[in-house]
């Protein structure tokens, strides 16, 4: 893109010299055009603070659809703090887990139900820094659902929390959703689906003099729609894998990912999830369970005897029950 922009600059200069009629004003305009093309490059790799604002916008669309749990009383305040402490703790202890889809896939040799990613996952320019860390919110709905947005926002439904029988299973949901964020899945989908529109929009913005910002509303709505539809199967496998590693690194039972997926499978059966429902976009749960089990076995992700001692597990489950039940 940079070369393209430079070439455009050269073309602009040559044009000015050849025609000999145009003065500085056109040259300046053409230079601005080159700058606008440079802006397209920026549009393709948003920095952490930009992703944070994008995630905030997407979150606004999510809470427009699902009512959030608000910190109106001590109990709700505690619930919000609890899930945020959990996410922050898992993030803090997972620094060694590869934070790009490509590196994660290079690391894993366990077979999925399909081949490796159909597209080349981008090595993230920033290795996905999260400008303000993770922000986890709860949604009042009884549906079993969760959303992860770029920039570190994560929304988990009460239905999903209630589905879990212990803290480790809730940690599995959190770790899976964190994975979508650190592996940049939301922006990856947006880049794939809307690349042409970013370009058109940016140039449109240039002509209007309003820049990239004019497309922001459309952008967050589009990312939210993708989040509602669910991620593609490759991304779900990646999130399961990253989440399982992160659980182990945090001291949780890696098998909690299997436990959580098994509960989702039971939920799907009990609620006769139809093809048009959002879960349809995920790979079949049974295959995900097999994949995670294979991963645990092959990578020898054993639970830490100390963190899985009766006393430790009891302490976690006590606070989980006290917080949510």
């Amino acid at each position: 893109m940079k070369n393209f922009a430079k070439n455009n600059g050269l073309i602009a200069l040559t044009l000015c010299m050849a025609v000999g009629l145009v003065g500085c004003s056109l040259l300046q305009t053409l230079t601005e055009g080159v700058n606008a093309l440079e802006e397209m490059k920026v549009a393709d790799s948003y920095d952490p603070s930009e992703q944070y604002y994008i995630g905030r916008g997407v979150s606004a669309v999510i809470v427009d659809k699902f009512a959030p749990v608000e910190a109106k009383d001590k109990q709700r305040e505690r619930q919000i703090t609890y899930v945020n402490e959990m996410a922050g703790y898992i993030e803090a202890t997972s620094k060694g887990v590869p934070r790009s889809a490509r590196r994660l896939n290079e690391h894993i040799s366990v077979e999925k139900d399909r081949n490796t990613r159909s597209s080349t996952a981008q090595e993230n320019v920033y290795n996905l820094s999260l400008f303000k860390g993770f922000q986890v919110g709860l949604l009042e709905t009884d549906e079993v659902t969760a959303f992860a947005t770029p920039g570190g926002f994560l929304w988990i439904s009460r239905g999903a929390v209630n589905m879990c029988s212990n803290e480790d299973e809730l940690a599995a949901i959190v770790a899976h959703e964190l994975a979508h964020i650190v592996l940049d899945h939301g922006m990856e989908n947006y880049r794939k689906a809307h690349k042409g529109k970013i370009v058109t929009g940016t140039l449109g913005g240039w002509f209007k003099g309003s820049g990239l910002g004019a497309n922001f509303g459309r952008m967050v709505t589009s990312i939210a729609e993708e989040a509602f539809k669910g991620y593609n199967p490759e991304q779900e496998y990646e999130a399961d894998a990253w989440g399982t590693y992160a659980l182990a690194a945090a001291g949780y039972a890696p098998e909690a990912m299997v436990g959580m997926l098994t509960r989702v499978e039971a939920y799907e059966k009990a609620h006769e999830v139809k093809e048009e429902d959002y879960l349809h976009h995920h790979p079949p749960i049974s295959k995900r369970i097999k994949y995670v089990n294979d991963l645990i076995a092959k990578e020898k992700l054993k639970p830490n005897p100390k963190t899985m001692s009766g006393e430790a597990v009891q302490a976690r489950n006590k606070r989980f029950t006290e917080t949510f039940k």
Partner: peptide, 23 residues
């Protein structure tokens, strides 16, 4: 920051900010 004048649910955005403040 973004020169946005369209389509964003401002009330929902306020809810998100309140959530951030609580966190």
């Amino acid at each position: 920051n973004w020169d946005v004048d369209e389509g964003l649910p401002d009330r929902s955005l306020a809810t998100v900010l309140a959530q951030e403040a609580a966190i």
